[in-house]
């Protein structure tokens, strides 16, 4: 067995990144027309599609709560996504834990009290995995919930951090994940609170603090990206709706001779 060097002497990781460098993030919202909200998020090669349905009438009346909505999370990790250990069914222990981690992350953030007796379904589809699955899923859930117009008190931005000797590594691949102790933190950037922190191995408390503060900072960087994706999309849609609407003409009070109408369409963007 040839051993891959996880961190070279020149401080480069196996995929050529620096220890604190994140992988490419791609965030797209509203990819799935049929759902109320959807998002496709990838961190490097890890790729997750989340669709949100609801708030809607609960399927079984026994599961409803009289004062708030119920969050239900479904996780699907197909074999082709490339995880270790073959097929994982819905009742697999690790999948169940993963599911409840996501649900518990979002329960305090989603303003469920606004929707009594309803249900919000979150479907997580893992398309491809290469480490940081929980982080990618949580980020995708945040964006899908925002896309669905469900009120959240804040963004939830998750990031994974591993420890190689005494160097913390951010946003790990599956190669690093299988060999190194690692933690996943979900940060609320507005309040600076943490809604989720998982760590499956024992590490020294001083090292932990270092990893944790680094993860907190990285979460804010991820937040910047998510904010940009959401704002760009919101602005584009608002503009499209104003352009087609009769409304904006009366509101901005712009009236011009018909010969110059085409230019008006351009100017409207600057208004």
């Amino acid at each position: 067995m040839s051993r891959v060097e996880l961190l070279s002497v020149h401080n480069y990781r196996s995929d050529g990144r620096r220890p604190k460098e994140l992988r490419d993030i791609s965030l797209s919202l509203g990819t799935h027309g049929h759902a109320d909200g959807s998002a496709l998020v990838s961190h490097g090669l890890t790729n997750v599609l989340v669709t949100v349905h609801g708030p809607r009438e609960a399927k079984s009346r026994a599961n409803t709560l009289f004062d708030r909505a119920v969050l239900s999370v479904n996780v699907d990790i197909p074999v082709f996504s490339g995880g270790q250990g073959g097929k994982r069914g819905r009742s697999d222990k690790r999948v169940l834990e993963f599911t409840s981690a996501i649900r518990q992350t979002f329960e305090p953030i989603v303003q469920t009290q606004l929707y009594p007796r309803s249900q919000i379904d979150i479907f997580v589809q893992v398309l491809q995995q290469d480490g940081g699955l929980l982080q990618t899923s949580i980020n995708a859930c945040t964006l899908a919930l925002i896309d669905a117009g469900i009120p959240l008190t804040d963004y939830v931005c998750a990031i994974t951090c591993a420890l190689h000797d005494s160097t913390p590594l951010l946003d790990i691949t599956s190669l690093e994940e299988s060999d190194l102790p690692n933690l996943t933190a979900a940060v609320l950037p507005k309040s600076g609170k943490i809604t989720l922190l998982t760590l499956e191995t024992r590490i020294h408390v001083d090292r932990f603090e270092e990893m944790f503060t680094l993860a907190e900072d990285a979460g804010k960087v991820v937040h910047g990206e998510m904010l940009r994706a959401v704002t760009t999309r919101t602005e584009r849609l608002v503009r499209a709706m104003e352009k087609g609407g009769v409304q904006d003409h009366s509101r901005t009070g712009i009236e011009r001779p018909s010969a110059r109408r085409a230019e008006m369409d351009i100017d409207m963007d600057d208004v």
Binding site: G30, D36, G37, G54, P55, R56, Q111, I146, D147, A148, G149, I150, P151, L152, T153, V230, T231, R233, T234, L237, V238
Partner: peptide, 22 residues
């Protein structure tokens, strides 16, 4: 704000109209 959308103000009442919702 708790949703992504546009701000609407009527006198002293501030609300945000979500772009997409039920």
């Amino acid at each position: 704000a708790s949703v992504a959308g546009t701000i609407e103000r009527v006198n002293k009442l501030v609300s945000v109209r979500a772009l997409k919702s039920r």
